[in-house]
Amino acid sequence: MSSMLQNFSKNKTALICMIILLFIIVVVIFSEFLPLHSPNKMNKEYRLQGPSSEFFLGTDQFGRDLFSRIISGAKISLLVGISSVIISVGIGIILGLIAGYFGKWYDSLIMRTMDILFAFPEILLALAIVAALGPGTFNTILAIGIVNIPVFTRLVRGSVLGVKNLEYIESAKSLGAKDTRILFLEILPNITAPLLVQSTLAISGAILTESALSFLGLGVQPPNPSWGGMIAESRRYMELAPGMIIWPCLAMLITIFAINLFGDALNDIFNPLRGKN
């Protein structure tokens, strides 16, 4: 473990990305204590302004502070990203373990169902689910969570197949361990590395999907700010106040970029042999 941490601190990309992500998370958590304007408060006399000492990044068409809206949007994005991935990882682990370990018709049933889910383009499936459940933050989380289940089920199943015939699993069986014990205490810890990497990458994917849904008006509902929604609103005011579209895009870009590079770095740390040739 300590050598893993050492590897980590040596990997500069990982370190920088982690600092950026930690910074975003800390700002989001403590945003209520920061001296910011309320994200939903309208100031009619300050509409579509550029950056000033009063409004750090300027204002939108209702005179709302862009900076506090972006931070609020970050909160939503992280919330949706992380909780939807928790849903997909949780369900994916259980389905993948069952399919990989027990095989036979469990495997066929689960994996064919996953194939069906996989057959739809991600955004289309999310759209369909949100359309069925109705728009809103919670339903967005649920939809993105469901869309990502097959990715994790496949990943877990594949890893289980690689591990389950190793001798230490047989050894655990020969010592009288139950199936549940073998699944969760012997196999699961040995497949966490790919899971962790995939989860990180899935978070950025989920944030993008959330933005896309909000852009289309099916995700987070106004007046609550979300990056996708802000970009959608800004289209009409692009020439008047370019900040309205630039800042949310930039926020999204930095966040996604940091998460993806962080995921890649994690991958390098967990698979030190990969890509060295």
């Binding site: 190793l166 001798e167 230490y168 050894s171 020969s174 010592l175 009288g176 810890p189 040995n190």
Partner: peptide, 24 residues
């Protein structure tokens, strides 16, 4: 039988490098 396995009968494997779980 689970009560017998590992308790009354136990097994020593061929390959010591892989018969221990690396994470415990």
């Amino acid at each position: 039988f689970r009560h017998v396995r590992g308790n009354h009968i136990s097994l020593i494997f061929q390959e010591p490098m892989t018969s221990l779980n690396p994470l415990h």
